[in-house]
Design a protein around this nucleic acid. Sequence first.
DNA 1: TAGATTGTTAATCGATTAACAATC
DNA 2: TAGATTGTTAATCGATTAACAATC
Lengths: 220, 220
Amino acid sequence: MNPKKKISMAVVKRLPRYYRYLSDLLKLGIIRISSKELSDRMGITSSQIRQDLNCFGGFGQQGYGYNVEILYNEIGKILGLGNNYKTVIIGAGNMGQALANYTNFEKRGYKLVGIFDVRPEIIGKKIRDIEVMHMDEFDDFVKKNKVHIAMITVPYEKTPEVATRAARAGIKGLWNFSPMDLKIPYDVIIENVHLSDGLMVLGYRLNEKLREQKENKEKN
Amino acid sequence: MNPKKKISMAVVKRLPRYYRYLSDLLKLGIIRISSKELSDRMGITSSQIRQDLNCFGGFGQQGYGYNVEILYNEIGKILGLGNNYKTVIIGAGNMGQALANYTNFEKRGYKLVGIFDVRPEIIGKKIRDIEVMHMDEFDDFVKKNKVHIAMITVPYEKTPEVATRAARAGIKGLWNFSPMDLKIPYDVIIENVHLSDGLMVLGYRLNEKLREQKENKEKN
DNA sequence: TAGATTGTTAATCGATTAACAATC
DNA sequence: TAGATTGTTAATCGATTAACAATC
C-alpha cells in the first residue's frame, strides 16, 4: 500500500459498515475471518474487501485471513474513534432528544457533553443525565470543554445562523439534520443528513417495482 | 434516451437533490434555468445534469434551458411522489415522534396515517392529530388503509420481528432506523438509515484534517 | 510441506466529463 | 438570423472485479 495516496470517499463510506460487521463477529466470539467469508456475509466481493483494507495497510495474513479483533480495532483507529470526540446537540426537540438517547454514538467513542436550546420550557430538563442549557452559555461551554462536533437539529430557518455561531465558537465538525445543503464561509467540516432524500429513493424503488409487476401482469 | 435501459442507483440518488434545488428555485420565482446555472449552484458539472435528466427523457429545450416548474414536476413524477404513498410509524419513541413531526415528508406526498407502539403509557397520545395505536391493531389497520410504507423506529432487538410482521401485513417498503442491515425473507423493499455511519464518516474527515494540520505545523 | 488466503497487479466495468452537432 | 444551450456520442477517469504470485 501507498500511505500517500488519498483514500476515496467510496472506500471511507464502507468503513463504518465493515466496523459494524466486525463488531457483530466479535460478539459472536469469532476469532478469525477470511475475506471470502466476510464477503458472503456482507454481500460484496472478497476482492473489494482486500482492496479496501489494503488502502490502509496489510491487516491480514496469507493462508489465515484476518484476526477479527485486530481488524476491528484498526478500522476504529482509521475512523478516529480513539480520539474521543466530544459532541453537543443544538436543538432539544424530538430529533435532538432521539440523538441524545442514541447510545450507539457513545459506544463508538463520541461523547455527548452538552445539549442546547432556547425555549424556556425545556431549559434545565435532563436528558440522559445532561441538563439542557440555554444557547447563551453555548460559546463559553464549547471553548471550555473543547467540543469538536455539533449536531444541529434546530428548525430549518435557524440552521445557517446556528451553524455559523458554532463554527465561530470553535466547533470543527457540523452534523446537519435540516433538509438543506448547509454552506458557511468557515473552515469547518459539514456532513448533511437528508432523511427525506432516503425516503424518496425508497419511493422510487417502490414505484419501479409496482410498474414492473403491472407490466408482467399485462403480459399474461 | 432509451426507456428500456436500467437507471443506475448513482443517478437515482441524485434525483432528490435536484428536486430540492428546483423547489428552492421555484420559491425564488425563477422560471427557467440552464444546466450550467444549476451546476454552479449545486457544485456539479452541467454535463452530469444533462446526462442524468436524459435518462428519463428530454425535459429541456436547446437555446433556452429547462423550465423550472416543468422539470420539478417531472422529477416528482419519476420519484413517484404523485402516488400518494401512505406511511405508518412503528415505535413512538423520540425518533418516531421526530419523524411524525417532520412535515417535509407530507410536502413530498408521503402521508402519515398511523403511529403504533406497545407501551401502555403512550397509547392514545396524540402526535400531530394522529392517535398512537397499539400494535394489536396494526395488521387490520394496514390492510384496511392500504398502507405502503412502514418507518421502523423500535429498539434494535425488536426490529427483525416487527419488520417481518409489517411485511406479512402487506407493507411494501420498510424504512429501517436500527443500526443493522435488515434482511427478511419477504418480497419487500428495504432502505436502511445508518445514522452512526454518517457520524463516523464525519469523524474520519475530522481526523484527516487534524492530521494534515499537524503535518503542516511540523514542516514549518 | 501442502493448502489456504492474502496483497497486489492487471482487466473490466461503469460513471463522469468533454465535445459538438442539432435545434430552439 | 445569430446566439445559446440542449441532447448525445466519444473520451476519460475512477472504482470494482479477476487473477495469481507471494507467503503464512
